[in-house]
């Protein structure tokens, strides 16, 4: 899955560039949201690499998606709590995290794997 790692690295590079541009444009809060996205790519990379070391090649994607499902489950709970308490800042942050992991996992499927039933991550409207 060299393609997948390359996609993550190039996305992180783009996001880091975008973050710096936003900082330079005095848009600090938005740059923080971009940094969160970049961190999620970093987490996905680490999870994928750790999984690849432990699992046989045919099981890597399944095991990786299982781990990210679990992670996203916690973010969904935080999002629900934020919605219940009208905590807009936290809500936006949790949505960014969920959208980013959806985007990454979608790419993983595109570059060579489609797990039947797909993962169960809540579908957040990502624009």
């Amino acid at each position: 899955m060299k393609d997948f790692i390359e996609y993550i690295d190039s996305s992180m590079e783009d996001l880091q560039k975008e973050e710096q541009e936003l900082i330079a444009a005095d848009r600090k809060d938005e740059s923080n949201l971009v940094r969160i996205r970049s961190n999620i790519f970093g987490i996905a990379r680490t999870l994928y690499e750790v999984t690849a070391k432990k699992e046989s090649p045919e099981n890597v994607t399944d095991a990786y998606l299982e781990k990210t499902d679990k992670l996203a489950g916690n973010w969904e709970l935080s999002l629900q709590m934020a919605e219940e308490h009208d905590d807009i800042e936290k809500k936006v942050i949790e949505e960014v995290k969920l959208c980013t992991i959806q985007e990454i996992n979608q790419k993983l499927r595109e570059v060579g794997y489609d797990r039947s039933g797909s993962n169960q991550i809540i579908q957040v409207s990502c624009r």
Partner: peptide, 13 residues
Amino acid sequence: GLTAATISFHMKK
């Protein structure tokens, strides 16, 4: 040219 979520974030502040 921002998302509605980003606008809500700024409006809260």
